[in-house]
């Protein structure tokens, strides 16, 4: 059971659990869900080999996570070409869009999905959030071990504050509770594209939350969370630099 200590394996198991619940709830279409995930993972693995020229266990696990996330966010039964483009773009971004200091700039899944949305329209459905409790409990445990929980708390808090400010005229619990749990516990926290120290994490997550609330209000029909994450990915080196100066 030593493989369970591997964070990437844990994340894959979390995704598998959410996938299993989705299939259970839609058992009549299990084949559609399964083929979409298998296709996403295979595309990611081939893209990883094509863009990086290696197939180490770690890199394949990363690719599988990206492929699975993209597959679990696009609507079930979607045209396979859209999934292919989104996943291939996600993996390509890890190779092509990098900071001079080394790490890739953008959350790969978010970039692939935003690019696919630009090309084919919004096909994002977030069916991967089949059970919020699994996301919170298992995701929370993984993030606690990864020291990334500050990102989740800051995102949720500032998403609420943003919604509260922007919807002051017609405020409701529904509006306040529009933070996306799959996004918070699985996407925002990707270790390579987020700061590692707590103060920077609060600023990063807070920025994602505020921008997310803002874009959800201003841009209808586009996934504001993903745009906000990409924007904060871009300014991440600045956060770290300012944090170091303190």
């Amino acid at each position: 059971m030593s493989f369970l200590k591997n964070m990437k394996v844990r994340i894959l198991l979390l995704l598998a659990a959410l996938f299993a619940v989705a299939v259970y709830r839609n058992s009549g279409e299990a084949g559609v869900y399964l083929s979409q995930c298998v296709f996403g993972v295979l595309t990611a693995i081939f893209a990883q080999c094509a863009f990086f020229g290696n197939a180490s266990k770690t890199s394949l696990q990363s690719a599988a996570i990206t492929g699975m996330i993209v597959a679990m966010l696009l609507a079930p039964g979607i045209d396979g070409r859209i999934l292919w483009v989104a996943v291939a773009a996600a993996i390509a971004s890890k190779s092509l869009a990098r900071f001079p200091s080394g790490p890739h700039m953008f959350n790969p899944a978010a970039l692939g999905l935003v690019l696919a949305t630009c090309l084919f329209g919004n096909k994002i459905n977030w069916w991967g959030l089949s059970n919020p409790y699994i996301a919170i409990v298992v995701g929370g445990f993984i993030l606690y071990r990864l020291r990334r929980l500050s990102l989740v708390f800051s995102y949720i808090l500032f998403r609420m504050v943003g919604a509260w400010i922007l919807n002051a005229g017609s405020l409701s619990i529904d509006t306040l509770a529009l933070h996306n749990l799959f996004f918070a516990f699985i996407m925002v926290v990707e270790p390579k594209t987020t700061p590692s120290d707590r103060w920077s994490q609060w600023r990063f997550g807070g920025g994602v939350g505020l921008l997310s609330a803002l874009s959800a209000t201003l841009i209808s029909g586009f996934d504001g969370d993903l745009l906000a994450l990409l924007a904060m990915n871009l300014v991440r080196p600045l956060l770290r630099r300012q944090s170091t100066c303190r």
């Binding site: 609507a75 089949s130 529009l178 029909g221 996934d223 969370d225």
Partner: peptide, 15 residues
Amino acid sequence: YPIFCSTYCGADHGN
């Protein structure tokens, strides 16, 4: 044919 919600609308949006 399935119809989905395409804007995140809460914790049970995926379903």
